[in-house]
């Protein structure tokens, strides 16, 4: 166990000198798990092969005959590994995770919708509510059209953010490579875009649910 303790502060290690699983400290970040730098841009193939390699070492399947304490460690470590992989493999989730590591959880006030979208958002929310209580078939059809339009509008909004995210991500990574903290302006802009995205995603989900109910 001494090997585990020593590694806790610096380069974290999942295994001690004898190759046994160590308990994973709660504060361990997902990048440390894969021994990868805390960057926005990441080689997804490299991530996958590291994930597979670690899965082969940590998965409960390989600890069936181990003592109970080791079985629990394997279960917990696998759960953490899967969460880490899921978060890092998706560029958006990865960006949210990095931004939150750097500057705290995204808050409600990060996600205030911009004034120019307010109208569309209100319309869409109204359409969803109406659709749920609507009984007239004719009315349902026009509401359905509204919902489809709202969905398209939000999806366009979402993909429009891609270029901005990419640019901010590159600026972030350049700072990290230079050994500096990411510029405050970049962090602020990322928070605002990601917060809005969250907001749009929530609306998009209720629109999609309403559409799915209709099909």
């Amino acid at each position: 166990m001494s090997g585990c303790e020593a590694d806790k502060k610096t380069a974290f290690s999942i295994f001690d000198e004898s190759g046994e699983i160590c308990p994973i400290p709660a504060e361990t970040d997902y990048f440390a798990f894969f021994s990868m730098p805390r960057k926005m841009e990441l080689d997804e193939f490299d991530l996958e092969s590291r994930y597979f390699k670690l899965s082969r070492k940590l998965h409960p399947d390989f600890f069936m005959n181990a003592p109970a304490s080791k079985r629990i460690l394997s279960l917990e470590a696998s759960a953490r590994l899967n969460e880490a992989y899921k978060t890092l493999k998706d560029p958006i989730q990865r960006a949210v995770y990095l931004v939150e590591l750097e500057s705290g959880k995204l808050q409600e006030n990060d996600s205030t919708p911009p004034a120019d979208m307010l109208e569309e958002i209100l319309e869409a929310q109204e359409a969803v509510v109406d659709f749920k209580c609507c009984e007239e078939e004719e009315q349902a059809e026009s509401l359905l059209r509204n919902l489809e339009a709202a969905k398209e509008c939000f999806e366009a909004q979402r993909s429009g953010q891609r270029a901005a995210l990419k640019d901010l991500g590159e600026r972030w990574d350049r700072a990290v490579e230079a050994g500096e903290p990411p510029p405050a302006e970049v962090v602020q802009k990322l928070r605002s875009i990601l917060g809005l995205r969250n907001y749009i995603d929530n609306i998009l989900r209720s629109v999609q649910n309403a559409l799915e109910m209709a099909s």
């Binding site: 409960p60 279960l75 759960a79 899967n82 992989y85 899921k86």
Partner: peptide, 8 residues
């Protein structure tokens, strides 16, 4: 569709 084991 979250890979298991998983925890929250």
């Amino acid at each position: 569709n979250t890979t298991i084991p998983t925890s929250k």
